[in-house]
């Protein structure tokens, strides 16, 4: 018993020592220090209200919870990590905006009420973390994908749909849906993990605009919103994806002509 306590104490002390510079979590999550260590390389970390996370006030479907991470108020964001501490699988996605805003909307699975956080890293290596508490029932991660109820589900894997809107501020708003079961590997039916793990977004000339790493908590049929910087005359955006079975996916989303390029202000539609 004494030995057990001693081991426990040393763990606690080591833990405190390693994360002395991690600010206290206002949401008091038991996973906070571990998240910083595992997903943010141990820091440095600052809490920053300019990094905004939006979650619904009501969660009716735990397998499809709309989340938006917005770090546009920060300059020079190189990496934006989205995670949910109390999910069995915490890491949701990492966005590396090249010619894109530090902004992403996505739908996620949640197993229970949890903090949802976005961490934005600039060139100085400091992680700016914004957090919000998502009040939800559970079961999103351990419920089988809806697609698994359909016998012909595999016929639709990789089917993609999307649209791009030109915004008045010069960004192109890209919305994309890719059919994929995004199996977590935790479902009661023992389906192994099967999910899209990478999306490369490029201009039609092949310029990288953004890359996304996706993980198991991203909902079935991933549906994303990104804000891209593309030349006014560019006619399309290419998206190349890959899942953890090595299957590749390719989409080309046509981009409307930007009216401001010919002297008019782009309408918001």
């Amino acid at each position: 018993m004494t030995r057990f306590v001693a081991v426990l104490m040393s763990l606690v002390i080591a833990g405190n020592g390693a994360f002395a510079d991690v600010p206290a979590d206002p949401l008091k999550s038991p996973m906070w220090a571990d998240m910083v260590k595992r997903l943010l390389g141990g820091g440095p970390v600052v809490l920053d209200g300019r990094v905004k996370v939006t979650v619904p006030s009501i969660v009716e479907n735990q397998a499809q919870v709309a989340v938006t991470a917005d770090a546009r108020a920060l300059d020079g964001v190189e990496e934006l990590v989205l995670f949910a501490d109390l999910n069995p699988l915490q890491h949701i996605l990492t966005l590396r905006p090249r010619k894109a805003a530090a902004y992403v909307s996505v739908r996620i699975k949640v197993e229970q009420a949890t903090p949802v956080r976005a961490a934005a890293r600039g060139a100085d290596g400091v992680w700016h973390v914004g957090s919000v508490y998502l009040d939800a029932a559970g079961g999103g991660c351990s419920a089988p994908a809806m697609a698994r109820r359909e016998e012909d589900w595999s016929d639709f894997v990789g089917h993609s749909q999307g649209r791009i809107w030109r915004e008045a501020d010069g960004f192109a708003r890209a919305r994309l849906r890719i059919r994929h079961p995004m199996d977590t590997g935790l479902a009661k039916d023992n389906t192994p993990a099967y999910f899209i793990e990478k999306l490369d977004v490029k201009s039609s000339a092949g310029d990288p605009l953004a890359t996304l790493e996706l993980f198991e908590p991203v909902s079935e049929d991933p549906t994303l919103t990104l804000l891209l910087r593309i030349p006014p005359a560019d006619g399309a955006v290419d998206v190349e994806g890959r899942d953890n079975n090595g299957e590749t996916y390719r989409s080309t989303i046509p981009t409307p002509w930007r009216q401001s390029a010919i002297g008019a202000v782009a309408p918001q539609c």
Binding site: H159, Q161, G162, R177, Y249, T252
Partner: peptide, 11 residues
Amino acid sequence: EAETWPRVDGV
């Protein structure tokens, strides 16, 4: 989203 967005995967 499912019913109105055009297919973009080249099919």
